[in-house]
Computed example of a mutant assay.
Amino acid sequence: MVILFLFSILKKQPSNAAIYYPRPLSKRHPITFPPFSLRRFIPSFSWIPRAFRVTEDEILQTNGLDALVVIRLFKFGINFFTVCSSVGLLILLPINFGGQPASSDSYRSMDSCTISNIKTGSNMLWVHFMCLWFISLYGLHLLYREYSEILVKRIQQVRNLRHRPDQFTTLVREIPVCGEHKARGCCVDHFFSKHHPYSYHSYKMLYDGKDIEDLSKQARYVYEKVQGLRKKCEGKKHGKESDECRDDLLKITGLEEKLEELS
């Protein structure tokens, strides 16, 4: 009960969102919390009935197959130990308790509830044997059923997954320049098309981030310079200023060509 109290309180705190809502956060789904008030620190149990109404398909879609397997494991334990407890309490316990006469020394001890209270050679030992076989076969049946159902759900999940190229990507470094086309990408395409024709799909060149950052800074500088010249040219209208504006337009044209090369 204390654990349920703490769970219901902590899950309502925004600072614990990364613990209780990791999957929605990873998918960037908005999570709303009640405003700061005394209500956030009062335990609530309204989530318990809703938790029992959640279907396995909803768990599979929202939390994945691993979460569903864990829940099925708890259900398996409940089903198995419920049957074991029923067999033990309704069948084995009365047989063990009545295995010895009331005058026996073990009548008032815990041994009177165990198999040691049955006489040696008694036919009641066969009841224990049959119950053991029943529980073992029932456990194997539950395991087989759980395995079959989880296997089907796993196959369905694999079929529903979209093909993601990033899961089948190979990173290649130190690529030589193709002597024929003077390009590195051409060398990659020739190599994989020749040696891996059935598994090769496409390639994409990745460059050092520092070079891209330098090019981005140069492009930004040229763009700002073009904008400055345009504003300067708009302020000039007559005479000598018109000639200067013409020179600025030529500079703008050259800078725009350079900007296209950088982009």
Rank of each mutant, 00 (worst) to 15 (best):
Phe7Gly: 01
Pro101Asp: 11
His196Lys: 10
Phe192Glu: 02
Glu261Gln: 09
Gly77Leu: 11
Pro30Met: 00
Thr62Phe: 06
Tyr147Met: 12
Ser8Ile: 03
Ser109Glu: 04
Cys178Thr: 02
Ala51Cys: 05
Phe168Asp: 10
Arg28Thr: 08
Lys194Cys: 05
Phe191Val: 12
Lys225Ser: 10
Ile115Tyr: 13
Leu140Lys: 07
Lys231Met: 10
Leu137Gly: 07
Thr55Asp: 03
Leu38Tyr: 06
Leu4Glu: 05
Ser46Gly: 12
Ser263Gln: 15
Val54Leu: 10
Pro22Lys: 08
Thr62Asn: 08
Gly235Ile: 06
Val2Ile: 08
Tyr144Ser: 12
Ile9Asp: 04
Thr253Glu: 14
Asp189Arg: 12
Phe5Gly: 04
Pro49Ile: 00
Lys232Asn: 10
Phe74Trp: 13
Tyr21Trp: 08
Ile59Cys: 06
Ser103Asn: 11
Gly88Phe: 11
Pro30Phe: 00
Leu132Asp: 11
Thr32Trp: 15
Tyr147Ile: 09
Ile91Leu: 13
Lys27Ala: 05
Thr82Asn: 14
Met124Val: 00
Phe36Ile: 15
Glu256Leu: 08
Arg164Val: 06
His163Gln: 04
Val70Asn: 10
Thr169His: 01
Pro101His: 05
Tyr107Glu: 02
Phe134Asp: 00
Ala219Leu: 03
Lys75Asp: 08
Met1Ala: 05
Ser85Tyr: 15
Gly121His: 10
Lys210Trp: 04
Arg154Met: 10
Thr170Gly: 11
Tyr138Ser: 06
Glu257Thr: 07
Ile59Trp: 06
Ser104Asn: 04
Arg184Tyr: 09
Ala67Tyr: 12
Arg164Tyr: 10
Pro197Thr: 05
Val226Met: 11
Arg159Ala: 13
Leu60Ile: 04
Ser85Leu: 15
Trp133Arg: 09
Phe33Tyr: 13
His29Ala: 12
Asp214Ala: 07
Met205Thr: 13
Ile115Phe: 11
Asn63Lys: 12
Arg72Tyr: 02
Tyr207Gly: 04
Leu259Pro: 02
Leu68Phe: 04
Lys232Thr: 11
Phe134Thr: 07
Val87Trp: 01
Ser104Phe: 01
Trp133Val: 12
Leu215Met: 14
Val222Trp: 01
Tyr221Gly: 05
His195Pro: 01
Tyr203Val: 00
Trp126Glu: 03
Arg162Trp: 01
Leu151Ser: 15
Ser148Gln: 13
Arg108Val: 03
His190Trp: 01
Arg230Pro: 01
Pro197Leu: 02
Leu137Glu: 13
